[in-house]
Design a protein around this nucleic acid. Structure first.
Lengths: 353, 353
DNA sequence: CTGTTAGCGCTTTCAA
DNA sequence: TTGAAAGCGCTAACAG
């Protein structure tokens, strides 16, 4: 690849100057001024030869590669991984950097291998990303240089970028409260494991805190909460059925993520209930599916693209300290409306329509 | 990053040998044999110092970087991008290579920039990926070295990796035929632009060819085909409503992708029709949503992970010639059943349940 | 069998 | 104002 590229020596020769002179002109070094004419000649020569510096050679000297390692546990599983990467890519491009990516698949051997591979290539820094917001411990090898955790924290307070899940919880809930829901709001997606083990999830507990805080602010009653084994559509479906079986059907539910909400939609439709007329729904993530549902699902979006971008900014500006929390904002679609009417606290719900 | 790494000189010194000797041992060069004891000493020294070669330095000499550029038009939009990358990543890891990624966003300026950045870093080859299977022209700059097109072809027959969309069309259709559907199969998602402009899509025409061929094989009638402006759920929804409005409701539909199928499901549910009892559905892609629908959607999966892997293999083994077509296989879920009964070719359908 | 000597292409003292 | 020379860490000729 790139066989006969012109070298700096070629440029210098053509310009009738030394490599030093050429180098200085091309790098805009002010250390010592060359004649305007020398500048001209060098630029002209470089232009004519289509000169491009060899980054490997340069970095051997400068110990800078303008390359960032992006190491994540899993890249493919979720669409969100792409957003994280895209944000990082954008920011990197703006600063003339490039991303070397690797995936550990949660396997320590792969991880070790990946990190070595990156370090061997003298990357300027490492972004260590998790696909689910969580706490993790970064391998010792990374301590050698700048690191930013993306969508993760570590026990030892490395600089990190996180989404504001607690704020998101408030936002979701407030949306409901603003429309007049209050004492019959339910929560779908409580999960002991996700809420208690920070290595599994940081989002679950934070979202719940936000939800409860918003409710407490207006003195609303404790919401009905349904536990789910995981956050997949089938669990949301089951949870919603559970809720519908009870006497006082909720006027609104907040689902811990969009997949749960999708399942909830399915159960609602099956019960002949209409969103948002009979039940309002809000959730989190802004999975593509949120826009595809009928009606569109109002959801608090994960700011993954911004997070990815922020991570490289922190890394390169090395003002990276503490945690950077990125706000999450509501994508308003059609799934929220005022409660139909208080209704008698008995029946499970009317038939279709 | 990686400040005080031991260098080859350190290892040599510690082993009491020359850099040359150390280099040879470490690289397992057989050119000239060193004493067994020398081997021992070198390995021991390297081990003790935690020596790792500096890839930049090495590549300055060898002109090999063990780095592959992965340039794509869009990485984030679809989940499939992740699969392509993941496959490539896996294959690269197995061969001790690493991926430098960049995204052009379809912008020629970005593209130029990205390619320069990669070439400046002396990558060993380039994988040029498109997110929708299509034809494209690769920038001249890439002709300098090995290139493999991923999910794309070019007018000048660069080596490429493509999914077998025509086979997929046959597979989808055959699934229906095998269950007894025949003359009342409909197709959702015809699209003039996608079918005629190879720079937009290669998949649409190929899938359609496959569908028709399978039908022709059994002498089935020409299917009812509905055009869609795009392949999004809303279009599938509209298309299905159109079909249901006609007198002879289809017993089965093949949708050009899963998003259309999702829309079709919505229209079916709304009409009080049940999948697969009243209408069977098959489609293409294996979008995550296919597994989330109720019942699960049978769909012919895009083999993106395999494709990504294949691209790397072709590039590195440089036996890269012509096009490599990767088969697509059916994910059998619950959306296909035998037709209920021939039924009178009149009514639009019964009420709910 | 082993070690010395040149570079790869670049930046950076240091002298002229 | 400019240029020669050294050297980043490594490998490949070429002598010993």
């Amino acid at each position: 690849m790139g066989h006969n590229r012109a070298t700096l020596a070629d440029v210098a020769r053509r310009a009738g100057l030394s490599k030093t002179a050429a180098s200085m002109v091309l790098n805009g070094r002010e250390g010592t001024r060359l004649s305007a004419e020398a500048h001209q000649r060098v630029f002209a020569a470089a232009e004519e030869l289509g000169y491009r510096p060899n980054v490997a050679a340069r970095s051997l000297r400068t110990r800078k590669t303008a390359t960032i390692a992006f190491v994540s546990d899993i890249v493919a599983t979720t669409r969100f991984a792409g957003d994280l990467i895209r944000g990082a890519l954008d920011a990197a491009r703006e600063r003339d950097h490039v991303l070397l990516i690797a995936e550990t698949q949660g396997d320590p051997a792969f991880e070790r291998h990946a990190i070595d591979a990156m370090l061997d290539r003298q990357v300027d820094g490492v972004i260590y990303a998790a696909m689910a917001t969580r706490r993790l411990t970064v391998p010792q090898a990374l301590r050698a240089g700048p690191v930013v955790l993306l969508n993760a924290t570590s026990p030892d307070d490395l600089p990190c970028v996180l989404p504001d899940d607690e704020g998101a919880g408030r936002t979701a809930t407030t949306t409901l409260l603003d429309r007049g829901h209050r004492d019959r709001i339910a929560v779908i997606g409580r999960n002991r494991l996700k809420e208690t083990d920070p290595e599994v999830s940081l989002a679950a507990a934070a979202r719940l805190r936000g939800i409860r805080a918003a409710l407490a602010d207006v003195g609303a009653g404790v919401p009905r909460e349904v536990f789910c084994q995981d956050w997949l559509p089938e669990h949301g479906y089951a949870a919603m059925r559970t809720l519908l079986r009870r006497p006082d059907r909720p006027t609104a539910v907040v689902c811990m993520n969009d997949r749960l909400a999708f399942g909830a939609y399915q159960a609602l439709a099956e019960a002949g209930l209409e969103v948002p007329r009979d039940v309002s729904v809000v959730s989190f993530d802004d999975d593509p599916i949120a826009a595809w549902l009928r009606p569109g699902l109002s959801t608090v979006a994960l700011p993954h693209e911004t997070m990815g971008r922020r991570a490289v900014e922190l890394l390169l500006d090395d003002r990276a300290i503490g945690s950077t929390v990125v706000p999450m904002s509501l994508r308003r679609r059609g799934s929220v409306a005022p409660p139909a009417d208080p209704g008698p606290p008995d029946a499970a719900g009317p038939g279709p329509r």
